[in-house]
């Protein structure tokens, strides 16, 4: 029984981790309609910066947030401005996919060039210390991630609902043409949104770095699961991504224990295909647009 509860708890924590990685991805897709295949590499970049700051300056890894989040915001904003925006008018979205895939390839290999193939371990500063609840154990860092994911989801939802800028972001996603008529500079909103999405994954990077070894391909490891999470939650839905992440976290943990740890990914991706067949709009899929008259 304890084992089972421990597995469920591990799944929950893993869910929090997937959530915090996926939120930026779904935000960017929901508003700009671009799948950022370089999302994982943004995470990887953030983790390397965290590692550098922690090891070079001897600071607590969480202190890196002051640097990592703004740096990633700028990275995201630049990606939108210099790479995606010139391609927004492209005939189909393939070109944009190619663009972010190219960016991903370039970033992975840039990291290899700079940091080599060695694994970088961020000093945990106590974040790997276990917290014990009776017979159940968790890592402090995991709990922090879970809490941060909840705060991030609620914060973003409040921002999108109750600020004029947040509403403008939603307006652009729902009806770009009408948003222009309101005097919203759509390109600014896109740059801001991409920046925000990247900043979210920056926060994730700071929180994850002390728990996972950083390497040039760590992004690919996380981002594939993030894709499944985002589709399960409904492309573009932030609460959906959170809930999807929790589900995938549990599936991952349970199948890892009961089926075999080397087959976890096969189970998760099999589930992915099942979602596409049964409920492609996901748990919180976007509703149909009312543009039939135009």
């Amino acid at each position: 029984m304890t084992t089972f509860l421990q597995i469920l708890l591990n799944g929950l924590m893993l869910g929090g981790l997937f959530a915090i990685v996926s939120i930026g991805l779904t935000l960017i897709f929901g508003i700009i309609k671009v799948v950022n295949f370089a999302h994982g590499e943004f995470l990887m970049g953030g983790m390397f910066i965290t590692w550098l700051i922690t090891t070079q300056m001897g600071l607590h890894p969480y202190a890196a947030v002051i640097v990592v989040v703004p740096v990633l915001f700028v990275m995201g904003a630049l990606t939108q401005r210099l790479l995606i925006q010139p391609l927004m008018s492209a005939r189909d979205d393939h070109i944009q996919i190619f663009a972010t895939v190219g960016l991903s390839t370039a970033l992975i290999n840039l990291a290899l060039l700079i940091f080599g193939a060695d694994i970088a371990n961020t000093p945990p500063h106590g974040l790997r210390a276990p917290l014990e609840f009776g017979e159940l154990r968790l890592l402090t860092g995991q709990v922090m991630i879970f809490g941060a994911a909840i705060v991030l989801v609620i914060g973003l939802e409040l921002f999108l609902k109750y600020t004029q800028t947040g509403r403008a972001i939603r307006a652009v996603a729902q009806n770009r043409g009408a948003a222009e008529l309101m005097g919203i500079n759509v390109n600014h909103i896109y740059v801001l949104t991409f920046g925000l999405g990247a900043a979210c994954v920056g926060l994730a990077a700071v929180l994850i770095a002390p728990l996972y070894p950083t390497s040039s391909n760590i992004g690919t490891y996380f981002v594939l699961t993030a894709f499944v999470v985002v589709v399960l939650g409904g492309l573009g839905s932030i609460p959906g991504a959170f809930l999807g992440a929790l589900i995938i976290g549990e599936v991952d943990a349970l199948s890892g224990y009961y089926i075999g740890s080397d087959l976890r990914e096969a189970v998760v991706f099999g589930l992915f295909l099942l979602i596409l067949i049964l409920r492609p709009s996901g748990l919180f899929g976007a509703r149909q647009n009312l543009s039939h008259l135009s």
């Binding site: 390839t105 370039a106 840039l110």
Partner: peptide, 22 residues
């Protein structure tokens, strides 16, 4: 001598192709 260089070149070529020669 330079691990990742040729992958980096691939990525950059892809980016340039997408932007200037779609």
């Amino acid at each position: 001598s330079a691990l990742g260089l040729h992958g980096f070149v691939y990525g950059v070529v892809l980016l340039l192709a997408v932007l200037f020669m779609p």
